[in-house]
Design a protein around this nucleic acid. Structure first.
Lengths: 227, 227
DNA sequence: CTGAATCCGACACGATACTG
DNA sequence: CAGTATCGTGTCGGATTCAG
Protein backbone atom coordinates (compact mmCIF):
# COMPACT_ATOMS: atom_id res chain seq x y z
CA UNK A 1 0.00 0.00 0.00
CA UNK A 2 1.06 3.60 0.29
CA UNK A 3 4.25 4.65 1.99
CA UNK A 4 3.60 8.26 2.81
CA UNK A 5 -0.08 8.03 3.57
CA UNK A 6 0.34 6.75 7.07
CA UNK A 7 -0.59 8.98 9.93
CA UNK A 8 0.65 7.02 12.93
CA UNK A 9 -2.38 8.02 14.94
CA UNK A 10 -4.36 5.82 17.22
CA UNK A 11 -7.65 6.86 15.67
CA UNK A 12 -10.26 5.03 13.61
CA UNK A 13 -10.70 8.02 11.29
CA UNK A 14 -7.01 8.14 10.51
CA UNK A 15 -6.94 4.37 10.02
CA UNK A 16 -9.83 4.55 7.57
CA UNK A 17 -8.13 7.29 5.61
CA UNK A 18 -4.95 5.26 5.45
CA UNK A 19 -6.96 2.53 3.73
CA UNK A 20 -9.34 4.47 1.46
CA UNK A 21 -7.90 7.99 1.49
CA UNK A 22 -5.81 7.72 -1.65
CA UNK A 23 -6.96 9.45 -4.76
CA UNK A 24 -9.65 7.51 -6.67
CA UNK A 25 -10.22 4.85 -3.99
CA UNK A 26 -13.55 6.09 -2.69
CA UNK A 27 -14.77 6.87 -6.20
CA UNK A 28 -14.10 3.29 -7.21
CA UNK A 29 -16.14 2.21 -4.19
CA UNK A 30 -18.85 4.68 -5.18
CA UNK A 31 -19.16 3.08 -8.59
CA UNK A 32 -19.00 -0.48 -7.28
CA UNK A 33 -21.87 0.35 -4.91
CA UNK A 34 -24.05 0.31 -8.04
CA UNK A 35 -23.10 -3.33 -8.56
CA UNK A 36 -20.18 -5.37 -9.92
CA UNK A 37 -18.30 -3.72 -12.78
CA UNK A 38 -15.63 -4.57 -15.27
CA UNK A 39 -12.31 -2.78 -15.54
CA UNK A 40 -13.48 -0.75 -18.50
CA UNK A 41 -16.81 0.09 -16.91
CA UNK A 42 -14.93 1.59 -14.00
CA UNK A 43 -12.53 3.37 -16.33
CA UNK A 44 -15.48 4.92 -18.14
CA UNK A 45 -17.21 6.09 -14.97
CA UNK A 46 -14.01 7.47 -13.53
CA UNK A 47 -13.21 9.36 -16.70
CA UNK A 48 -9.67 10.60 -16.56
CA UNK A 49 -8.08 7.85 -14.49
CA UNK A 50 -5.16 6.14 -16.18
CA UNK A 51 -5.21 2.36 -16.49
CA UNK A 52 -2.09 2.20 -14.43
CA UNK A 53 -3.73 3.85 -11.45
CA UNK A 54 -6.98 2.01 -11.81
CA UNK A 55 -5.04 -1.24 -11.72
CA UNK A 56 -3.04 -0.15 -8.70
CA UNK A 57 -6.07 1.09 -6.77
CA UNK A 58 -7.99 -2.10 -7.47
CA UNK A 59 -5.05 -4.13 -6.16
CA UNK A 60 -4.88 -1.96 -3.04
CA UNK A 61 -8.60 -2.31 -2.44
CA UNK A 62 -8.34 -6.04 -2.97
CA UNK A 63 -5.47 -6.28 -0.48
CA UNK A 64 -7.57 -4.30 2.01
CA UNK A 65 -10.44 -6.77 1.62
CA UNK A 66 -12.77 -4.17 0.13
CA UNK A 67 -12.94 -5.44 -3.43
CA UNK A 68 -13.06 -8.94 -4.87
CA UNK A 69 -11.78 -9.81 -8.29
CA UNK A 70 -13.72 -12.43 -10.14
CA UNK A 71 -12.54 -13.85 -13.44
CA UNK A 72 -14.52 -16.73 -14.84
CA UNK A 73 -12.43 -19.47 -16.43
CA UNK A 74 -12.98 -19.45 -20.16
CA UNK A 75 -14.21 -15.85 -20.22
CA UNK A 76 -11.84 -12.99 -20.71
CA UNK A 77 -13.79 -10.56 -18.59
CA UNK A 78 -12.78 -9.65 -15.07
CA UNK A 79 -15.50 -8.46 -12.74
CA UNK A 80 -14.84 -6.43 -9.65
CA UNK A 81 -17.29 -6.47 -6.79
CA UNK A 82 -17.42 -5.11 -3.25
CA UNK A 83 -16.97 -7.46 -0.33
CA UNK A 84 -19.14 -7.07 2.77
CA UNK A 85 -16.43 -4.84 4.16
CA UNK A 86 -16.61 -2.71 1.03
CA UNK A 87 -20.38 -2.46 1.19
CA UNK A 88 -20.03 -1.03 4.66
CA UNK A 89 -18.35 2.01 3.16
CA UNK A 90 -21.77 3.06 1.85
CA UNK A 91 -22.44 5.38 4.80
CA UNK A 92 -19.12 7.11 4.14
CA UNK A 93 -19.94 7.65 0.48
CA UNK A 94 -23.43 8.83 1.34
CA UNK A 95 -22.19 11.28 3.94
CA UNK A 96 -19.81 12.71 1.36
CA UNK A 97 -22.65 12.92 -1.16
CA UNK A 98 -24.83 14.81 1.29
CA UNK A 99 -22.12 17.29 2.15
CA UNK A 100 -21.18 17.75 -1.48
CA UNK A 101 -24.78 18.33 -2.40
CA UNK A 102 -25.12 20.99 0.27
CA UNK A 103 -21.80 22.71 -0.16
CA UNK A 104 -19.86 21.78 -3.25
CA UNK A 105 -22.08 20.78 -6.16
CA UNK A 106 -22.13 22.93 -9.28
CA UNK A 107 -23.44 22.57 -12.81
CA UNK A 108 -21.18 20.45 -15.02
CA UNK A 109 -18.25 22.30 -16.51
CA UNK A 110 -17.82 22.24 -20.26
CA UNK A 111 -16.29 18.90 -21.14
CA UNK A 112 -17.40 17.35 -17.86
CA UNK A 113 -19.34 14.23 -18.77
CA UNK A 114 -22.62 13.56 -16.96
CA UNK A 115 -23.44 9.90 -16.43
CA UNK A 116 -27.18 9.29 -16.44
CA UNK A 117 -27.05 7.04 -13.37
CA UNK A 118 -25.18 9.68 -11.46
CA UNK A 119 -27.66 12.36 -12.42
CA UNK A 120 -30.57 10.27 -11.17
CA UNK A 121 -28.70 9.15 -8.08
CA UNK A 122 -27.81 12.72 -7.20
CA UNK A 123 -31.41 13.78 -7.68
CA UNK A 124 -32.85 11.07 -5.45
CA UNK A 125 -30.35 11.68 -2.66
CA UNK A 126 -31.09 15.37 -2.90
CA UNK A 127 -34.85 14.99 -2.80
CA UNK A 128 -34.81 12.51 0.05
CA UNK A 129 -32.50 14.71 2.05
CA UNK A 130 -34.53 17.87 1.46
CA UNK A 131 -37.77 16.02 2.02
CA UNK A 132 -39.28 16.95 -1.29
CA UNK A 133 -42.83 15.57 -1.30
CA UNK A 134 -45.64 15.21 -3.79
CA UNK A 135 -49.33 15.00 -3.04
CA UNK A 136 -49.47 11.51 -4.54
CA UNK A 137 -47.06 8.76 -5.61
CA UNK A 138 -45.45 9.22 -9.01
CA UNK A 139 -43.47 7.38 -11.65
CA UNK A 140 -41.55 9.62 -13.98
CA UNK A 141 -39.69 8.25 -16.96
CA UNK A 142 -36.53 10.05 -18.00
CA UNK A 143 -35.29 9.28 -21.52
CA UNK A 144 -31.74 10.33 -22.24
CA UNK A 145 -31.21 10.58 -25.98
CA UNK A 146 -29.24 7.47 -26.90
CA UNK A 147 -28.07 7.10 -23.31
CA UNK A 148 -30.68 4.93 -21.65
CA UNK A 149 -34.04 5.27 -19.96
CA UNK A 150 -34.61 5.54 -16.21
CA UNK A 151 -37.65 5.62 -14.00
CA UNK A 152 -37.81 7.94 -11.04
CA UNK A 153 -40.21 6.71 -8.37
CA UNK A 154 -41.89 8.56 -5.53
CA UNK A 155 -43.75 6.09 -3.34
CA UNK A 156 -45.48 8.67 -1.18
CA UNK A 157 -42.56 9.05 1.22
CA UNK A 158 -39.20 8.43 -0.47
CA UNK A 159 -37.62 8.91 -3.87
CA UNK A 160 -35.77 6.19 -5.73
CA UNK A 161 -34.83 5.36 -9.29
CA UNK A 162 -34.01 2.37 -11.43
CA UNK A 163 -32.87 1.68 -14.95
CA UNK A 164 -35.45 0.95 -17.59
CA UNK A 165 -38.88 2.25 -18.39
CA UNK A 166 -42.17 1.09 -17.03
CA UNK A 167 -45.72 2.39 -16.86
CA UNK A 168 -44.97 6.02 -16.14
CA UNK A 169 -47.38 8.86 -15.56
CA UNK A 170 -44.97 11.43 -16.95
CA UNK A 171 -42.18 11.24 -19.51
CA UNK A 172 -39.19 13.56 -19.87
CA UNK A 173 -36.93 13.51 -22.92
CA UNK A 174 -33.61 15.27 -22.58
CA UNK A 175 -29.85 14.81 -22.36
CA UNK A 176 -27.96 14.18 -19.13
CA UNK A 177 -26.40 17.65 -19.33
CA UNK A 178 -29.67 19.50 -19.91
CA UNK A 179 -31.30 17.46 -17.18
CA UNK A 180 -28.83 18.34 -14.43
CA UNK A 181 -28.63 21.94 -15.55
CA UNK A 182 -32.38 22.06 -15.15
CA UNK A 183 -32.17 20.40 -11.73
CA UNK A 184 -29.56 22.81 -10.44
CA UNK A 185 -30.97 25.97 -12.00
CA UNK A 186 -31.99 28.69 -9.57
CA UNK A 187 -35.73 29.34 -9.54
CA UNK A 188 -35.42 32.38 -11.75
CA UNK A 189 -33.79 30.44 -14.58
CA UNK A 190 -35.74 27.25 -14.25
CA UNK A 191 -38.42 28.09 -16.77
CA UNK A 192 -35.75 28.88 -19.34
CA UNK A 193 -33.93 25.63 -18.62
CA UNK A 194 -37.18 23.68 -18.84
CA UNK A 195 -37.41 24.56 -22.51
CA UNK A 196 -34.60 22.11 -23.24
CA UNK A 197 -36.80 19.29 -21.90
CA UNK A 198 -39.70 17.60 -23.65
CA UNK A 199 -42.20 16.75 -20.95
CA UNK A 200 -45.37 14.81 -21.59
CA UNK A 201 -48.13 13.79 -19.20
CA UNK A 202 -51.54 14.93 -18.17
CA UNK A 203 -52.08 18.28 -16.52
CA UNK A 204 -52.18 17.03 -12.97
CA UNK A 205 -48.89 15.19 -13.33
CA UNK A 206 -47.20 18.11 -15.04
CA UNK A 207 -48.27 20.35 -12.18
CA UNK A 208 -46.84 17.85 -9.67
CA UNK A 209 -43.58 17.83 -11.57
CA UNK A 210 -43.14 21.57 -11.61
CA UNK A 211 -44.39 22.07 -8.07
CA UNK A 212 -41.79 19.65 -6.75
CA UNK A 213 -39.09 22.15 -7.69
CA UNK A 214 -40.79 24.97 -5.87
CA UNK A 215 -40.85 22.76 -2.82
CA UNK A 216 -37.12 22.41 -3.19
CA UNK A 217 -36.63 26.16 -3.10
CA UNK A 218 -38.70 26.50 0.05
CA UNK A 219 -36.63 23.98 1.99
CA UNK A 220 -33.27 24.92 0.56
CA UNK A 221 -31.37 27.26 2.81
CA UNK A 222 -28.00 26.64 1.19
CA UNK A 223 -26.95 28.16 -2.07
CA UNK A 224 -26.60 25.18 -4.37
CA UNK A 225 -24.17 26.90 -6.68
CA UNK A 226 -21.83 28.16 -4.00
CA UNK A 227 -18.16 27.27 -4.04
CA UNK B 1 -6.33 24.65 -3.92
CA UNK B 2 -5.01 21.49 -5.40
CA UNK B 3 -4.31 21.22 -9.07
CA UNK B 4 -4.13 17.50 -9.60
CA UNK B 5 -6.92 16.47 -7.30
CA UNK B 6 -9.75 17.37 -9.61
CA UNK B 7 -11.91 14.60 -10.95
CA UNK B 8 -14.05 16.42 -13.51
CA UNK B 9 -17.07 14.38 -12.52
CA UNK B 10 -20.55 15.66 -12.10
CA UNK B 11 -20.95 13.99 -8.72
CA UNK B 12 -21.31 15.30 -5.18
CA UNK B 13 -18.97 12.64 -3.81
CA UNK B 14 -16.21 13.62 -6.22
CA UNK B 15 -16.81 17.30 -5.47
CA UNK B 16 -16.51 16.67 -1.74
CA UNK B 17 -13.29 14.77 -2.21
CA UNK B 18 -11.89 17.58 -4.31
CA UNK B 19 -12.43 19.88 -1.33
CA UNK B 20 -11.50 17.69 1.66
CA UNK B 21 -9.76 14.70 0.05
CA UNK B 22 -6.19 15.96 0.37
CA UNK B 23 -3.97 14.40 2.96
CA UNK B 24 -4.54 15.78 6.50
CA UNK B 25 -7.66 17.80 5.64
CA UNK B 26 -10.25 15.56 7.28
CA UNK B 27 -8.00 14.96 10.26
CA UNK B 28 -7.80 18.70 10.85
CA UNK B 29 -11.59 18.78 10.71
CA UNK B 30 -11.71 15.82 13.10
CA UNK B 31 -9.66 17.73 15.66
CA UNK B 32 -11.54 20.99 15.20
CA UNK B 33 -14.80 19.12 15.85
CA UNK B 34 -13.63 18.98 19.48
CA UNK B 35 -13.66 22.78 19.55
CA UNK B 36 -11.48 25.69 18.40
CA UNK B 37 -7.75 25.00 18.48
CA UNK B 38 -4.53 26.87 18.06
CA UNK B 39 -1.92 26.09 15.42
CA UNK B 40 0.27 24.24 17.86
CA UNK B 41 -2.65 22.33 19.35
CA UNK B 42 -3.43 21.01 15.90
CA UNK B 43 0.21 20.27 15.22
CA UNK B 44 0.36 18.23 18.44
CA UNK B 45 -2.78 16.24 17.67
CA UNK B 46 -1.70 15.58 14.11
CA UNK B 47 1.72 14.41 15.16
CA UNK B 48 3.94 14.13 12.17
CA UNK B 49 2.51 16.91 10.03
CA UNK B 50 5.03 19.58 9.07
CA UNK B 51 4.22 23.23 9.78
CA UNK B 52 4.34 23.96 6.07
CA UNK B 53 1.57 21.49 5.32
CA UNK B 54 -0.50 22.43 8.31
CA UNK B 55 -0.36 26.04 7.16
CA UNK B 56 -1.28 25.13 3.60
CA UNK B 57 -4.15 22.85 4.62
CA UNK B 58 -5.56 25.49 6.97
CA UNK B 59 -5.43 28.05 4.15
CA UNK B 60 -7.18 25.62 1.80
CA UNK B 61 -9.87 24.87 4.37
CA UNK B 62 -10.29 28.59 4.99
CA UNK B 63 -10.68 29.24 1.27
CA UNK B 64 -13.28 26.47 1.09
CA UNK B 65 -15.28 28.10 3.89
CA UNK B 66 -14.74 25.18 6.27
CA UNK B 67 -12.41 26.83 8.78
CA UNK B 68 -12.28 30.33 10.22
CA UNK B 69 -9.12 31.96 11.45
CA UNK B 70 -9.42 34.22 14.45
CA UNK B 71 -6.52 36.29 15.72
CA UNK B 72 -7.14 38.78 18.47
CA UNK B 73 -5.31 42.08 18.03
CA UNK B 74 -2.59 42.40 20.65
CA UNK B 75 -2.43 38.67 21.26
CA UNK B 76 -0.07 36.45 19.37
CA UNK B 77 -2.38 33.46 19.40
CA UNK B 78 -4.38 32.40 16.39
CA UNK B 79 -7.45 30.26 16.92
CA UNK B 80 -8.95 28.09 14.24
CA UNK B 81 -12.58 27.10 14.37
CA UNK B 82 -15.03 25.29 12.11
CA UNK B 83 -17.66 27.27 10.26
CA UNK B 84 -21.21 25.90 9.98
CA UNK B 85 -20.14 24.31 6.72
CA UNK B 86 -17.24 22.66 8.51
CA UNK B 87 -19.45 21.39 11.32
CA UNK B 88 -21.56 19.65 8.72
CA UNK B 89 -18.61 17.40 7.95
CA UNK B 90 -19.26 15.67 11.27
CA UNK B 91 -21.32 12.87 9.66
CA UNK B 92 -18.45 12.21 7.26
CA UNK B 93 -15.92 11.96 10.07
CA UNK B 94 -18.26 9.78 12.11
CA UNK B 95 -18.92 7.44 9.21
CA UNK B 96 -15.18 7.05 8.76
CA UNK B 97 -14.78 6.44 12.50
CA UNK B 98 -17.42 3.72 12.43
CA UNK B 99 -15.88 1.96 9.46
CA UNK B 100 -12.40 2.27 10.90
CA UNK B 101 -13.58 0.85 14.20
CA UNK B 102 -15.15 -2.14 12.46
CA UNK B 103 -12.44 -2.83 9.92
CA UNK B 104 -9.18 -1.00 10.43
CA UNK B 105 -8.46 -0.27 14.09
CA UNK B 106 -5.50 -1.91 15.75
CA UNK B 107 -3.60 -1.44 18.99
CA UNK B 108 -1.15 1.46 18.88
CA UNK B 109 2.18 0.66 17.28
CA UNK B 110 5.33 1.32 19.26
CA UNK B 111 5.97 5.04 19.06
CA UNK B 112 2.37 5.81 18.10
CA UNK B 113 1.14 8.39 20.58
CA UNK B 114 -2.31 7.92 22.10
CA UNK B 115 -4.17 11.12 22.89
CA UNK B 116 -6.48 10.70 25.88
CA UNK B 117 -9.39 12.49 24.20
CA UNK B 118 -9.09 10.21 21.21
CA UNK B 119 -9.04 7.11 23.38
CA UNK B 120 -12.23 8.17 25.15
CA UNK B 121 -13.86 9.33 21.94
CA UNK B 122 -13.08 6.04 20.24
CA UNK B 123 -14.47 4.13 23.19
CA UNK B 124 -17.76 6.04 23.29
CA UNK B 125 -18.34 5.74 19.55
CA UNK B 126 -17.57 2.05 19.80
CA UNK B 127 -19.90 1.41 22.72
CA UNK B 128 -22.75 3.40 21.25
CA UNK B 129 -22.39 1.64 17.95
CA UNK B 130 -22.24 -1.84 19.48
CA UNK B 131 -25.02 -0.99 21.90
CA UNK B 132 -23.06 -1.85 24.99
CA UNK B 133 -25.44 -1.49 27.93
CA UNK B 134 -25.21 -1.58 31.69
CA UNK B 135 -27.93 -2.47 34.14
CA UNK B 136 -27.82 1.06 35.60
CA UNK B 137 -26.35 4.47 34.73
CA UNK B 138 -22.67 4.91 35.52
CA UNK B 139 -19.97 7.54 35.84
CA UNK B 140 -16.46 6.23 35.48
CA UNK B 141 -13.47 8.45 36.03
CA UNK B 142 -10.36 7.71 33.99
CA UNK B 143 -7.14 9.25 35.28
CA UNK B 144 -4.27 9.28 32.85
CA UNK B 145 -0.99 9.69 34.69
CA UNK B 146 0.02 13.30 34.14
CA UNK B 147 -2.20 13.50 31.08
CA UNK B 148 -5.58 14.65 32.37
CA UNK B 149 -8.70 13.18 33.89
CA UNK B 150 -11.87 12.28 32.00
CA UNK B 151 -15.31 11.09 32.98
CA UNK B 152 -17.07 8.45 30.99
CA UNK B 153 -20.84 8.62 31.38
CA UNK B 154 -23.51 6.02 30.69
CA UNK B 155 -26.94 7.58 31.14
CA UNK B 156 -28.91 4.37 30.79
CA UNK B 157 -29.00 4.46 27.01
CA UNK B 158 -25.94 6.17 25.52
CA UNK B 159 -22.27 6.59 26.31
CA UNK B 160 -20.51 9.94 26.37
CA UNK B 161 -17.43 11.46 27.94
CA UNK B 162 -16.10 14.82 28.99
CA UNK B 163 -12.92 16.24 30.36
CA UNK B 164 -12.51 16.63 34.10
CA UNK B 165 -13.50 14.56 37.08
CA UNK B 166 -16.73 14.62 38.96
CA UNK B 167 -18.53 12.43 41.47
CA UNK B 168 -17.70 9.06 39.96
CA UNK B 169 -18.75 5.63 41.10
CA UNK B 170 -15.63 3.99 39.73
CA UNK B 171 -12.09 5.26 39.15
CA UNK B 172 -9.49 3.90 36.76
CA UNK B 173 -5.85 4.96 36.89
CA UNK B 174 -3.75 4.13 33.86
CA UNK B 175 -1.87 5.53 30.87
CA UNK B 176 -3.49 6.18 27.49
CA UNK B 177 -1.51 3.32 25.96
CA UNK B 178 -2.43 0.78 28.62
CA UNK B 179 -6.04 1.91 28.47
CA UNK B 180 -6.52 1.35 24.75
CA UNK B 181 -4.56 -1.89 24.81
CA UNK B 182 -6.99 -3.05 27.46
CA UNK B 183 -9.96 -1.87 25.41
CA UNK B 184 -8.83 -3.65 22.26
CA UNK B 185 -7.57 -6.81 23.90
CA UNK B 186 -9.29 -10.02 22.86
CA UNK B 187 -11.29 -11.64 25.65
CA UNK B 188 -8.57 -14.16 26.37
CA UNK B 189 -5.97 -11.47 27.10
CA UNK B 190 -8.19 -9.01 28.83
CA UNK B 191 -7.55 -10.18 32.35
CA UNK B 192 -3.81 -9.87 31.77
CA UNK B 193 -4.20 -6.39 30.34
CA UNK B 194 -6.42 -5.37 33.25
CA UNK B 195 -3.45 -5.76 35.56
CA UNK B 196 -1.95 -2.58 34.16
CA UNK B 197 -5.00 -0.67 35.41
CA UNK B 198 -5.75 0.41 38.93
CA UNK B 199 -9.50 0.21 39.34
CA UNK B 200 -11.34 1.30 42.45
CA UNK B 201 -15.02 1.21 43.24
CA UNK B 202 -17.45 -0.94 45.14
CA UNK B 203 -18.13 -4.50 44.11
CA UNK B 204 -21.31 -3.81 42.17
CA UNK B 205 -19.64 -1.15 40.06
CA UNK B 206 -16.57 -3.24 39.43
CA UNK B 207 -18.80 -6.04 38.21
CA UNK B 208 -20.61 -3.60 35.87
CA UNK B 209 -17.28 -2.48 34.50
CA UNK B 210 -15.99 -5.92 33.70
CA UNK B 211 -19.31 -7.21 32.43
CA UNK B 212 -19.51 -4.38 29.90
CA UNK B 213 -16.56 -5.91 28.06
CA UNK B 214 -18.16 -9.32 27.89
CA UNK B 215 -21.16 -7.65 26.30
CA UNK B 216 -18.83 -6.25 23.69
CA UNK B 217 -17.60 -9.70 22.78
CA UNK B 218 -21.12 -11.00 22.37
CA UNK B 219 -22.13 -8.33 19.89
CA UNK B 220 -18.86 -8.12 18.04
CA UNK B 221 -18.92 -10.13 14.85
CA UNK B 222 -15.89 -8.44 13.31
CA UNK B 223 -12.37 -9.17 14.30
CA UNK B 224 -11.17 -5.95 15.86
CA UNK B 225 -7.55 -6.63 15.14
CA UNK B 226 -8.01 -7.54 11.51
CA UNK B 227 -6.15 -5.70 8.80
C1' DC C 1 -11.14 -4.61 -27.54
C1' DT C 2 -9.72 -5.72 -22.43
C1' DG C 3 -6.47 -5.55 -18.93
C1' DA C 4 -2.66 -4.34 -18.14
C1' DA C 5 3.07 -2.71 -17.99
C1' DT C 6 6.63 0.96 -18.79
C1' DC C 7 8.92 5.42 -19.01
C1' DC C 8 8.94 10.25 -17.82
C1' DG C 9 7.61 14.71 -16.06
C1' DA C 10 4.71 17.52 -12.71
C1' DC C 11 3.52 18.39 -8.37
C1' DA C 12 2.05 16.84 -3.60
C1' DC C 13 4.26 15.82 0.30
C1' DG C 14 8.16 14.95 3.98
C1' DA C 15 12.42 16.46 6.66
C1' DT C 16 15.03 19.91 8.51
C1' DA C 17 16.28 24.39 9.48
C1' DC C 18 15.22 29.01 10.32
C1' DT C 19 12.35 33.66 11.45
C1' DG C 20 9.06 37.60 13.22
C1' DC D 1 3.44 30.83 18.99
C1' DA D 2 2.81 30.69 14.32
C1' DG D 3 4.55 30.29 10.74
C1' DT D 4 8.72 30.42 6.05
C1' DA D 5 12.41 28.56 3.29
C1' DT D 6 14.95 25.00 1.14
C1' DC D 7 15.62 20.64 -0.64
C1' DG D 8 14.74 15.80 -1.38
C1' DT D 9 11.26 11.99 -2.19
C1' DG D 10 6.78 9.75 -3.43
C1' DT D 11 2.43 9.97 -5.75
C1' DC D 12 0.14 10.73 -9.60
C1' DG D 13 -0.87 12.14 -14.73
C1' DG D 14 0.16 11.38 -19.74
C1' DA D 15 1.68 8.86 -23.44
C1' DT D 16 3.01 4.70 -25.38
C1' DT D 17 3.32 -0.19 -25.70
C1' DC D 18 1.92 -5.06 -25.23
C1' DA D 19 -0.28 -9.73 -24.54
C1' DG D 20 -4.64 -12.39 -24.64
Amino acid sequence: MAKTRTYHHFCPVARSLEVIGEKWSLLIVRDLLMGPQRFTDLARYLGKITPKWLTLRLRDLEAAGIVERESQPGRREVWYRLTARGQELRPVVEALAVWGLDHAIRPPLPGEPVHPERALQTMTIFRNRRNVRLQRPARWSVRFAGDGVYTLVYDGARWSYHAGEEAADLVVETTPEDWVNFLLAPAAERAARARSLVISGDETRLADFHRSFDARDASSSDALGSA
